[in-house]
């Protein structure tokens, strides 16, 4: 294959990564933006989504699309419910103290990971894609499912943006993010908003995982990379900024795809992680973020 088509293939792969990453990172960003909580267990909610997708799609017989659609609806709901319980039982009691919540979410990470290992096992298991249609480009055939992942993710991002900017729920969330005490004084149930946002963040990660699981398999350790990449995206995009998160996800996904096609993936990770740490040291509000008050 020549350089041009090779680059196109790398870019397409990168866009698939970006699409999934944008959803996952958006969940992390919402939780940080509204609640000021760094959720270290976010990657595990992603993993749970994938594992549940496998469980649901194998439990339902018939055409793979039925099982997949059921997983796409049910897995995020279950993950959201688990996140809500964790938030009520642990984070709320800690009064959302930033350092205590980090330690507590590290604890959640270990618990979820170990339970997945115990009940799901150490194997990586595939989920059948809902359809297997190959789009023939002049140079190579490309999976139609992968393109549909990009489209679905874009739709969900637009939907989230509309909810945040055009609905009352979004207004309440933004008010809580802007100043939770004043929001409380105006009668916004800040406590319930926090619970809902934490569940929503986990659900976004779970949706992303269900979308990616037909491409890469479900495994109990699969939450590590998305966690780190989401951190990178959220930091570069500016903590709590939706537009920045999406731009950064596309940037990171594309460069990750292209760099790992042409160089060693470990080297790509080293460079990306180091650069992001440097961004955080010298531009603490991200490349696109504005200073918080």
């Amino acid at each position: 294959m020549h350089f041009g088509p090779h680059l196109l293939l790398a870019a397409l792969e990168g866009l698939v990564t970006s699409a999934v990453l944008a959803l996952t990172a958006l969940g992390l960003s919402l939780v940080f933006g509204v609640m000021r909580v760094v959720n270290v267990a976010h990657g595990e909610f992603f993993m749970l989504g994938a594992v549940l997708a496998w469980a649901i799609s194998t439990a339902i017989s018939g055409h793979p699309a039925i099982g997949f659609l059921a997983a796409l609806v049910l897995a995020p709901l279950i993950v959201g419910a688990i996140a809500l319980v964790a938030e009520r039982l642990v984070l709320r009691r800690l009064n959302y103290n930033p350092e205590a919540t980090i330690v507590a979410t590290i604890g959640m990470l270990y618990i979820i990971q170990q339970l997945a290992l115990t009940f799901y096992g150490p194997e990586a298991r595939p989920v059948e894609p809902p359809f297997s249609y190959r789009i023939l480009l002049p140079w190579f055939g490309y999976s139609g499912y992968k393109l549909s992942v990009i489209a679905t993710s874009a739709l969900l991002l637009v939907a989230t943006w509309l909810v945040l900017t055009r609905t009352k729920i979004g207004l309440v969330m933004r008010a809580t993010q802007y100043d939770s005490e004043t929001a409380q004084a105006f009668g916004i149930p800040v406590d319930r908003v926090y619970g809902g946002v934490f569940a929503l963040g986990a659900m976004l990660a779970a949706i992303a995982a269900v979308l990616i699981v037909p491409i890469s398999q479900a495994h109990y350790l699969m939450g590590q990379d998305p966690l780190l990449l989401s951190f990178i995206v959220v930091i570069i995009g500016g903590l709590g900024s939706l537009r920045g998160t999406v731009v950064a996800a596309v940037l990171i996904g594309l460069s990750d795809g292209i760099i790992s096609v042409f160089f060693s993936p470990t080297l790509a990770k080293i460079i990306a992680t180091f650069l992001v740490a440097m961004v955080l040291v010298f531009r603490p509000h991200g490349l696109f973020g504005t200073a918080s008050r």
Binding site: V90, V103, A104, I106, G107, M108, L109, Y110, I111, Q113, Q114, L115, L117, T118
Partner: peptide, 11 residues
């Protein structure tokens, strides 16, 4: 499942 114990202990 010792990681489970580590996790519960932390929380």
């Amino acid at each position: 499942a010792y990681l489970l114990i580590v996790g519960i202990a932390l929380i």
